[in-house]
Design a protein around this nucleic acid. Structure first.
Length: 344
DNA sequence: AGCAGTAGATGCGGGGTACT
DNA sequence: AGTACCCCGCATCTACTGCT
């Protein structure tokens, strides 16, 4: 049987290929997946359903399905509730599609999905109906057992914070900005894809040319890797207001005496004509993090973000830049990357 | 055999404590 | 009361060890 990781990747690619509109039913979607992978996936219906939810978010509370696809055990993650208290009340409900709220395990999935929202944006206490096991539960590792005591909220900061990536590392992970966890995940995918683990000691990483540029060594191990990786992860100012209540930030600022703008490792990138027009300042080069910050400033200033579903509703100016009417919050940096180029 | 815990690094939020 | 600081948990990865 295919691994969950492979299956998740396959679900993602299929969703991207066809778009949300192409998913008419879970059965149909599974059939497409089965054709792609050449195996029976009926036992994975629940997992696939969860993956679709993670990818599409609250736009798709549940993929329409018949009761035969998700068996009784799997469907225990969902509890049918009266329409009035639906978690997704702001979404027009389709006829014949049951509404659900999450029991604890799926609440974790939902919380994970919200990771890129700031805590003041995502407030389950106001969006979710009162529940003995509210979606306020912290993000937990899959290994953790069910009866986790209520802890403080996880929130979008910390490890989920989106950081900038140096051009060297960008050639590996493929994105200009990512969460640290995502960077590590993509890096490991790259290592496996290129078979860079020492067969005798799989903790050891043999660097190819691209990786050598990043790590500046011929080989490293999985523990040192994160340390080396840190040099290529650049904090973005947008996700954290300068002078906010971060105790450590205050401490490090005091100790180091560093202005935020002087943090090294960033490169000036050439601005596309479209982005230059959007910025309207006449400048032709910009730091990647600064470009992202300005776009987000514009989005916030014009109240273009729908905090309920973390979508950006593009006005005419943004439509000219991104060539679309709406975009997910997490997709902004990706779209922006098409307007920034390395200097030749 | 299968599962849980551990190793290491990262940045941030928040609880707890100590001090002014 | 307000400020400063320490410490922990969080996610992610793989290989290994110890326990059931």
């Amino acid at each position: 049987m295919v691994s969950d990781q492979v299956l998740a990747n396959c679900v993602e690619s299929l969703v991207r290929e066809g778009g949300a509109a192409s998913i008419t039913s879970l059965e149909n979607f599974i059939r497409q997946l089965e054709a792609k992978l050449g195996m029976d996936l009926s036992s994975k219906a629940s997992f696939i359903n969860e993956q679709i939810y993670i990818l599409l978010g609250p736009h798709f509370p549940q993929v329409p399905t018949s009761s035969s696809v998700i068996d009784a055990a799997d469907s225990s993650h969902f509890t049918q509730i009266p329409a009035a208290s639906c978690l997704f009340d702001h979404i027009p409900r389709q006829p014949n599609v049951p509404s659900f709220r999450f029991t604890a395990p799926m609440a974790l999935v939902a919380a994970t999905h919200q990771e890129h929202l700031t805590h003041h944006q995502y407030n389950p206490a106001t969006t979710a109906a009162p529940d003995p096991a509210p979606a306020r539960a912290p993000v937990a590792s899959p290994k953790e057992s069910a009866p986790a005591a209520p802890k403080r909220r996880g929130g979008p900061g910390g490890l989920s914070k989106v950081c900038g990536v140096t051009p060297e590392l960008q050639t590996i992970v493929g994105e200009p900005t990512m969460a640290r966890t995502e960077i590590v995940k993509q890096l490991w995918a790259y290592i496996r894809r290129n078979n860079l683990q020492d067969p005798n000691n799989k903790r050891k990483i043999i660097c190819n040319d691209e990786l050598r540029l990043v790590f500046e060594t011929d080989s490293t191990d999985m523990f040192k890797m994160n340390k080396l990786l840190a040099k290529h992860i650049i904090p973005l100012e947008h996700t954290k207001e300068p002078g906010s209540d971060s105790k450590r930030q205050k401490k490090s600022d005091r100790e180091v005496g560093v202005e935020p703008e002087s943090q090294g490792g960033q490169y000036l990138l050439v601005i596309s004509d479209g982005l230059a027009e959007f910025l309207g300042t006449g400048e032709r080069e910009i730091l990647q993090s600064e470009a992202l910050k300005r776009v987000w400033d514009y989005i916030e200033a014009n109240h273009l973000e729908d905090h309920r579903n973390s979508m950006i509703m593009c006005d005419t100016k943004l439509q000219r830049l991104f060539a679309c009417e709406s975009i997910s919050a997490s997709g902004v940096s990706k779209m922006l990357a098409h307007h920034l180029f390395k200097q030749s």
